[in-house]
Design a protein around this nucleic acid. Structure first.
Lengths: 244, 244
DNA sequence: TCCATACTTCGATAATCGTCTAACGGATTT
DNA sequence: AAATCCGTTAGACGATTATCGAAGTATGGA
């Protein structure tokens, strides 16, 4: 139950991101603000009541008299639209959220997240108890996200061009491969797809089993490599939530 | 050549949307602003020079002393980051833009766009010379975008769940089907996928050829239906650019 | 015509922004 | 150690902008 609510909230936040981004980059932000209010079929008065401001505030933003609404206002604005419409049955909201279903990652991606602030490479490894076996060229550069990949599913399900989905927003991230035997496959995939992650972690493999080919690729490409033993996938994902 | 530049600018604008949306919805906008500057490896000083403000302005936003940056500032902020880094070779920028390649629509979608403001149903039809053959329940409600679909490719390439990709941001849009014979296929697809577009246009088909099944589905589902004759796909796409 | 609803305009006041100045902490140099 | 540089942060002040509230227009019923 909790999880369903969380997913819904995540989707709503995702929609809000898109809306605010569109407003910000619009050539006429006021018109775009108005557009979204109209799409949710909410009146200025109803909205202003929900926001705790006068309706003239809404009007001023929509007319362009106030040219640069702050992000705190916009956040409240979009959330108020979704809340009002949601209370009335949420038909419009459902229409938007329905689309995001198909956006969900391929099942080969077990987890993917962006950090709000940079996380040090050492801090990242410490968090999940990973041990670095091939160190970085620039150990001081921060990470800004991670992707956990089931390497078997990735091979069977992802097309070559789809490999770039492993990169979320930024390439300065850790790629964590699970369900591996020697780590050779994932490192070859990284090489042929010309990916340059900031860190590669091989999950649940003893040091003695790590393929020499994997180590060599890491060395040549200058990609730091680490292994993470004696931690289940679930535990690791849980730990990673604490970062960033 | 022009087209390449346009596509690049579109991608950059898309990235800017994502960045601004992430900043706006972040629990700590200052940290997120800082994160993006760090990702582009630009100093406060360099950035402030590009923006024509003092570096303390940047500092204030990042520290959170100024809690709600306006969209005009954020737009300039993100564009400045991309410009500075782009001038230095744009390695980071290329990394981000590379990912957006795979986001491009399936080849079944010939064109897709969102309007910045609502467009009346009649205005839309007039723009491309379409003739309404099944009128709307609510003719006064505006459209907020359109999708042009090659119906043959849609059937061969799109999976059932992917049909929702036809809907861009909003469902209050026109779906324009090209490469059709009677319009029966597209309307059945709409019915089984439970889509409710605000308008369906059948491209390049005479009224006498329109299938009765198509008309009936439109009637039962309450979807306005129109046909668009004697206009090439290219001309239509060109005309549609003038809207919204 | 009157009334209700939805939205717009605009002046007075409160809040925020942008600049300048000064200071801080960490590196590097002397 | 002291001096210096660099990127960043904090205080104070005038300039700008946001908010409210009241009065206005526009539209569409009873």
């Amino acid at each position: 139950m909790d999880k369903v609510v969380d997913e819904l909230e995540l989707k709503k936040a995702g929609l809000a991101k898109d809306v605010i981004g569109e407003i910000a980059m619009s050539s006429d932000p006021g018109k775009t603000i108005k557009k979204w209010r109209a799409l949710f079929r909410v009146s200025q008065k109803e909205l202003s009541k929900e926001l705790g401001v006068t309706s003239s505030v809404i009007s001023d933003y929509e007319s362009g008299r106030r040219r640069s609404p702050g992000i705190l206002f916009l956040k409240k604005y979009v959330e108020a639209l979704m809340n009002i419409e949601g209370r009335r049955g949420g038909e419009v909201l459902k229409g938007f959220l329905h689309m995001t279903e198909s956006r969900s990652a391929s099942s080969a991606i077990a987890d993917i997240r962006e950090f709000e602030k940079g996380v040090g490479l050492d801090e990242f490894c410490r968090c999940i108890g990973a041990q670095i076996i091939k160190s970085a060229e620039h150990p001081d550069e921060d990470l800004y996200g991670y992707t956990v990949i089931d390497s078997v599913k990735a091979i069977t399900e992802l097309s070559f061009s789809e490999l770039s989905k492993l990169y979320g927003v930024t390439t300065r991230r850790a790629l964590i491969f699970t369900n591996i035997t020697t780590g050779k496959g994932p490192m070859i995939a990284i090489k042929v797809a010309n990916l340059k992650p900031a860190l590669v972690i091989l999950h649940n493999i003893p040091l003695s089993e790590v393929s020499d080919v994997a180590k060599n690729i890491a060395g040549i490409e200058g990609i730091p490599l680490a292994i993470c033993e004696n931690v289940t996938l679930e535990e690791m994902v849980e730990q990673l939530k604490k970062l960033g």
